[in-house]
């Protein structure tokens, strides 16, 4: 990991090897600013940030899960259900918006807890448990909203706006959630337990880590982060939509993996995930500016995901 493992490499080289995604992001930004004059404007960059925000917040939540060696396919659906819960309780049930927001977060966390219970106590593979939750949460969002968008309370919709004339609030939320994720992963007991569980679940268990309880915390965090992402998305649109964020779970997983995490667990960082989400957003934005068709954009993004992981694999083979 650091210089003492590979004494021959300079610290700079070791840092680069560990942070390939950062290098890729920088190269991408430089290339796009050369190719398109509009790319490097403040307005556009902030726009990229806003576009990255929802994916990044979802992806931070997914990072916890992926570090434990699991996967959470439900985050897009959970985001939509949480936003619908907020809008519905605030409008139809007439709850004050702060309370409605708490309800929304609780719904996200509850979805995570249910998935985790299926995994920890029902011994379902995470893929299956969260695939079930993907359907359940999406379905409930449709049931509650009766299939139609619900207006968000004005106070919450402010989240979609800016501070001053420029600074978009989603960007701030993204950074705050990123810092929270980083602190959880690096400094807290549940975070460190996630790495141990993902690295070797049996060794973690035999070292006294209560694996079941830690998995509950992990998926609850993922659900909570999904709720925040759902609220940010809905506030940007000023309405909660039952079909919102469909398929976003795959973007979230892609961001985590591009950021250097391993799907087999034990590895992954919040900063990497942020960079992964930014790479996806920068690519989409840049391809738009270059007038690449939406169809080809999907191809390019698919190639980038494959390349990112391929480079990482080759690098690791080189050092081992």
């Amino acid at each position: 990991m650091s210089a003492d493992v590979l004494p021959r490499r300079s610290p700079a080289a070791a840092w680069l090897a560990e942070n390939g995604a950062v290098v890729a992001l920088v190269v991408l930004v430089v290339a796009l600013s050369l190719l398109s004059g509009d790319f490097l404007s403040l307005t556009n960059l902030l726009n990229v940030g806003v576009q990255a925000a929802v994916t990044a917040i979802l992806a931070f939540g997914s990072t916890f899960v992926i570090v434990t060696g699991g996967i959470d396919l439900s985050v897009g659906s959970v985001a939509a259900l949480s936003a619908i819960s907020l809008a519905w309780t605030a409008t139809s049930a007439g709850l004050p918006w702060p309370l409605a927001t708490l309800v929304s977060l609780a719904v996200g966390i509850a979805c995570g807890l249910v998935s985790a219970a299926l995994i920890a106590y029902g011994k379902l593979p995470p893929f299956i448990a969260t695939l079930a939750m993907l359907g359940i949460a999406r379905g409930l969002a449709l049931v509650v909203s009766e299939g139609s968008p619900i207006a968000m309370p004005d106070a919450v919709s402010e989240l979609g706006g800016t501070i001053g004339a420029y600074l978009p609030i989603p960007l701030i939320v993204m950074v705050v959630m990123g810092v929270i994720a980083a602190v959880i992963l690096n400094r807290t007991y549940p975070g460190r337990a996630m790495y141990a569980i993902g690295g070797n679940q049996e060794a973690a268990r035999l070292s006294g880590i209560k694996v079941d309880r830690q998995l509950l915390i992990t998926y609850a965090l993922s659900g909570g982060f999904a709720a925040v992402a759902g609220i940010v998305l809905a506030s940007r649109l000023a309405s909660a939509q039952p079909q919102a964020a469909a398929g976003y779970e795959l973007d979230a997983i892609a961001a985590v993996v591009i950021g250097g995490a391993s799907l087999s667990g034990g590895k992954g960082r919040a900063l990497g995930t942020l960079v992964g989400a930014l790479i996806l957003a920068v690519l989409r934005n840049g391809l738009n500016l270059l007038s690449v068709s939406a169809f080809w954009q999907q191809v390019v993004i698919g190639v980038v995901i494959a390349l990112a992981v391929l480079v990482d694999t080759l690098r690791r083979r080189g050092t081992n």
Partner: peptide
Amino acid sequence: AQGLVLGADVAENLGLVTMRDATRAGFV
């Protein structure tokens, strides 16, 4: 298979059991 987190470093593995006691208010 049962004793070590192979991908983690020596310090992490040596702290696997004591981590709980080295936690104050959730922070390790």
